[in-house]
Amino acid sequence: MDASFWAMGGHAAFVWPSYAIGVGLILALAILSWRGYAAARDAVARLEADNPRRRRGGER
């Protein structure tokens, strides 16, 4: 990539932050969503292990 690509015709200060913020927010949401999912999955596994009678198949 040459310098003119990074300069974006003099609008680098607007183009690159747009991509950085957009991609960054989606990535942050994806990471938080996955961490929430993993926490909920582990919590259910722990609770079902405490009480095997209430174990339900197919919900994971």
Partner: peptide
């Protein structure tokens, strides 16, 4: 597709959280 994947993942989380609440209430 990204939106749908995130919405599905979070809905799965919501179902698991509901299940966890039910298990805790039963306990």
């Amino acid at each position: 597709f990204v939106f749908a994947a995130l919405a599905l993942l979070r809905t799965r989380t919501g179902i698991l959280e509901r299940r966890a609440r039910a298990l805790m209430a039963a306990r």
